[in-house]
Design a protein around this nucleic acid. Sequence first.
DNA 1: GTGAAAGCGCTAACAT
DNA 2: ATGTTAGCGCTTTCAC
Lengths: 353, 353
Amino acid sequence: MTPRRRATLRDIAAALDLSVNTVSRALAGKDAVSPETRERVRAEADRLGYVPNTMARSLVQGNAMTLGLVITNPSNPFYTRLISAIEERGRVHGYSLMLMVTEDSVDNEKRVVDELMRWGVDGVLAVPVQHGIDHWDRLRKSGTPVVLVNRDLPGLDTDLVGVDYYDSARRATEHLVAEGARDLYLVEEDLDISPVAERVRGFRAVLDEHGIAVRDDHMVKVPTRRREASSQPWDPEDSYEIGRELAGRVGPGAAVLAGNDYFALGMYRALTEHGLSIPGDVLVAGHGDHPFAAYLAPPLTTVRLPAAGVGAAAVDRLLERMSGESGAGSPRQTLLPAELVVRASSRTANGGA
Amino acid sequence: MTPRRRATLRDIAAALDLSVNTVSRALAGKDAVSPETRERVRAEADRLGYVPNTMARSLVQGNAMTLGLVITNPSNPFYTRLISAIEERGRVHGYSLMLMVTEDSVDNEKRVVDELMRWGVDGVLAVPVQHGIDHWDRLRKSGTPVVLVNRDLPGLDTDLVGVDYYDSARRATEHLVAEGARDLYLVEEDLDISPVAERVRGFRAVLDEHGIAVRDDHMVKVPTRRREASSQPWDPEDSYEIGRELAGRVGPGAAVLAGNDYFALGMYRALTEHGLSIPGDVLVAGHGDHPFAAYLAPPLTTVRLPAAGVGAAAVDRLLERMSGESGAGSPRQTLLPAELVVRASSRTANGGA
DNA sequence: GTGAAAGCGCTAACAT
DNA sequence: ATGTTAGCGCTTTCAC
């Protein structure tokens, strides 16, 4: 509670009748200090409860030792794991994390990018909102490396570390087809972002290869209506409503692949309420392997996303860029593979391998 | 990509043949500047892409305009919503958020508190790891206000904003008893933290009042074994194992109250696998109202936690302390009420109100 | 081995 | 209305 002023190098110097400079070097562990002096300085620093002032140091050294993380929605379990991984990896390298949340609003994003610039963070990791390039461009032009995470931002010429959603959708779709599905639906959030686009591409590709028709109504878009800010990543309710409508028209060999497990969850209820059984009448698979997926009845087949891997790789890439080693290199895209976890919701008796 | 040096006040001043000071005042919108000068300065600042250096400003003004948030595990959906709420509320007041993750390790906590001190953040919000007071004490003695969030830390003389878990457990337990439960189990994580303790207290109180015996085996502790860091808040698997054992010994009028919905989820499987029906044979209720709760079969009765409210209230309390208005006041505890959401998992035909 | 001086970019006094 | 000086706390020359 004692609101006493923070001790500074000068306080220590004064107490010991040394120069500020010597104290600084002693504490920094530099060589040009006699062992005795160093000890005295250390002792006095302890006594005074000295804590170095990072901002002062950063100001003179010109680096903030801070990374900015711009994220759309920390309620999304995937991002949640990303945050942890990034925080951890950053800390290992001595970097603090400044967290900025955009709620998928470009206005917010502009604001937070600006703030990051003012702080002079050394690098930025970002899950970008879909539209709006200028502020990112400014940030990069100011000399701050930026690594995009999970979502691409066409038009911004920079690195990306994400998940190979094209492949994940392919694998899930292949699996469903192998289990006998012939009437397949892809349920995705109605957002124009790269993960969705990639999954759509993968889904279609597999069906094309198998000569299975893809009608427009096979591509189900769940309208995004963000409610109470960030309280939930996706609402099963939204896909539930879509699902009720869908339940009425699915044919034999029906299967639903959802872009996230919450949508799959909404489907569960819609389908079962309509008297359809999973996987008896409809196969269901999701994305994300959210904690509840394995514990649903039936357990949900889903794609496990390499969140920790993406986080770590993104930090590593950023640090590379910051160190300038590969600073000159052209932007690289790194897509980590996801893993299909097959559970009861997509297994038929007659099915697959 | 141009790694050109960031423009400073001095650059603007030089270009316009003004003093740095005038430029500073012009940009700050202070009165003592002629309108023309202000315009010229603004234009030049724009042209140069000037961005103020927050660290330099903070250094001279002595405030960082930054809040520290120390959290145990960002995967916990409750904390997730807390982060959003805190970030948002902080931003409204012009504060950036520095996020620190402890993974419930005291060692990590000491490290991050130290780092927060070095940054000289203006205030700290913290979900504390249970043991270890000294580093918090140092932080507060250094003049940084600290507000505990969700978990209390006995021995640390500071504010707390949290959830009234005593009351939430009481309400849930009352409800179960009203529905006819007579053999009640409380399933909690085996951690010595205040939320658990409070729920235990509430649970016992109600049973005592109803003259229902509470044997030791009614208090079920789920061993905490953190796996892959932060990938999950709690693992249904853990309570599943406990549940299998429990399923064998529940009597008539059995009910399970879980400290979180993930544990309830594990119970669902354990009980149904054992041939018990929910709510026919066993009533189940959870805590958290996690997104999946309403979509389970049967939908899970649970306690909805006021995460956004806690976050906002915590920031407000912190700002109060920072402004020193009530700085002198003694620590206050604010516990927000939670809301019981009754769903099918706890409703019997013969039951309740 | 130690100290004096300068400066990071900015704002706050105090001139003028 | 504008400029000068000083200083936030620290590190980096460069003397001694």
